[in-house]
C-alpha cells in the first residue's frame, strides 16, 4: 500500500471553538429571525424559497463534510433523484404534497445508503473518486431514461399541490409567499432536527471519526455504520430539498443530477462554514443572492466563487460563519478591554 494515501488528515484546523463554545440557543434564534425576515429583505419570495431549499441541501452536505469529514460529490444524485421521484409520483400517481415529499426523502435516503455503502469501502482520494463516478453514472442514466426524466429538456409541468389533509385543502401554495411558508416551516424543522442529530451520541461519534478515524475504530466504533447512516440522513434531507426545488420551478431540469450541482452544494457548504448549521444558511443565502444580483450585471460572477473557495481554504477555514465568530470574539475582547480600561 502507498503509505501516502492512508496518512490521516493533518493540519485540519476546523474551528475547535465551534465545539467548545457553542451557543445553540442564540444561533437558533438568529436562524428563526433570518427565516422570518428573509422574504421581506430579498427581492422576491421565490428567491427566498430558493435560499432555504439550498440551505437544506447544504445542511445535508454539512453533515458529511463538516461533521464526518467526507467530501462527497454524490449530493447531486440525491438532490436530482428527490426532484424526479416527487415529480413523477405527483404526475403519474397524483399523490399529495406530503406523500411526494416523503417519497423524495426516502429515495434520497435509500440512494445515499447505497452510494455511501459503496463509497466508504475506500478512503481519501479514492472515496472522492467513487462518489464522482457514481454521480456521473446517475447523470447518464437520467439522460438515457428520457421517457421518464425528459432527458435534456427536463421534466416539465411539475405540479405544486396544496397542503391538504384527507382531500380537504388547507392552504393553496400557488403564490410564492405561501410556498415560502411551507419551505420555511420544513427548514426550521430540519434545522432543529440536524441540531438534535449533532448533539446525539451518533453526532458526537461523527466528530470523533472526522477527528481521527483510526482512534474511533480503536475505541470500539464500527465507523462504517456511522458513515453509512450519515450518508442516509444527508441523502434524505437533500432529496427533500430536490423535491421542493422541482415544485418551486414547476420543472425538474437534468442539471439537478449533474456534477456541477454537487459542486455548487459543496461550495455553498464551504463558503458558509463547514461544521456549522447556521453557516449552511449563510452559505446558501450568500451564493443564491449573489447569483441573483450579479448574474444580470456580470454573467461571469462565478469567478468570484473560485476566488472565495481558494480564500476560504487558505485563510478562513471556518468560512463565513468562522469569520463572523472570530469577529464577534475580537469585539467581545475589545469590549472587555475598554471595560477594564474604564
Amino acid at each position: 500500500m502507498n503509505p501516502k494515501l492512508t496518512t490521516p488528515a493533518r493540519g485540519d484546523s476546523r474551528p475547535a471553538n465551534a465545539i467548545f463554545r457553542r451557543r445553540p440557543a442564540a444561533t437558533t434564534l438568529a436562524m428563526l429571525a433570518v427565516v422570518i425576515a428573509l422574504p421581506l429583505v430579498v427581492p422576491s419570495a421565490t428567491l427566498a424559497c430558493e435560499i432555504l431549499i439550498f440551505a437544506m441541501a447544504v445542511l445535508g452536505c454539512n453533515l458529511l463534510l463538516g461533521y464526518t469529514g467526507l467530501l462527497s460529490f454524490g449530493q447531486a444524485i440525491f438532490f436530482g433523484s428527490g426532484a424526479y421521484v416527487a415529480a413523477l409520483a405527483m404526475i403519474h400517481w397524483q399523490v399529495g404534497l406530503f406523500t411526494a415529499l416523503l417519497l423524495a426523502a426516502a429515495a434520497g435516503g435509500l440512494l445515499a445508503l447505497l452510494v455511501g455503502a459503496l463509497a466508504i469501502r475506500r478512503t481519501g482520494i479514492y472515496f472522492v473518486m467513487l462518489t464522482l463516478a457514481l454521480t456521473q453514472m446517475a447523470y447518464f442514466i437520467a439522460y438515457t431514461l428520457s421517457d421518464w426524466t425528459g432527458g435534456d429538456n427536463g421534466l416539465l409541468d411539475v405540479p405544486r399541490p396544496p397542503v391538504a389533509i384527507g382531500g380537504f385543502t388547507l392552504f393553496d401554495l400557488e403564490s410564492p409567499l405561501a410556498f415560502y411558508g411551507l419551505v420555511a416551516v420544513l427548514f426550521v424543522f430540519l434545522y432543529l432536527g440536524a441540531r438534535r442529530v449533532i448533539d446525539s451520541a451518533f453526532g458526537s461519534t461523527l466528530l470523533a471519526i472526522r477527528e481521527n478515524e483510526a482512534r474511533a475504530a480503536a475505541v470500539g466504533y464500527d465507523t462504517r455504520h456511522f458513515k453509512i447512516l450519515a450518508f442516509a440522513l444527508s441523502g434524505a434531507v437533500t432529496g427533500l430539498a430536490g423535491a421542493l426545488y422541482a415544485m418551486l420551478l414547476n420543472f425538474a431540469p437534468l442539471s439537478n443530477i449533474e456534477l456541477p450541482m454537487s459542486e455548487q452544494i459543496l461550495i455553498m457548504t464551504i463558503i458558509g462554514g463547514t461544521g456549522s448549521l447556521f453557516g449552511s444558511l449563510l452559505g446558501a443565502g450568500t451564493i443564491v443572492i449573489l447569483g441573483d444580483l450579479l448574474s444580470a450585471l456580470w454573467p461571469r460572477w462565478m469567478l468570484l466563487l473560485g476566488v472565495a473557495l481558494i480564500a476560504v481554504v487558505m485563510f478562513m477555514r471556518g468560512g463565513l460563519w468562522g469569520g463572523l465568530e472570530s469577529l464577534g470574539r475580537r469585539r467581545a475582547g475589545a469590549a472587555r478591554k475598554t471595560q477594564e480600561d474604564a
Binding site: R14, I19, S200, A201, T205, N212, A218, V219, G220
Partner: peptide, 27 residues
C-alpha cells in the same frame, strides 16, 4: 492518537461510549 480538537472530557466520553455498540448509532 487522540481526538485533538475535542475536549479532554469528550475524548474520554467517546472512548467510554465506544462499547455501546449499536446504541451509539442513536441519532
Amino acid at each position: 492518537s487522540l481526538f485533538q480538537n475535542l475536549s479532554v472530557r469528550e475524548n474520554l466520553r467517546l472512548a467510554a461510549q465506544g462499547t455501546a455498540g449499536w446504541r451509539a448509532l442513536d441519532f
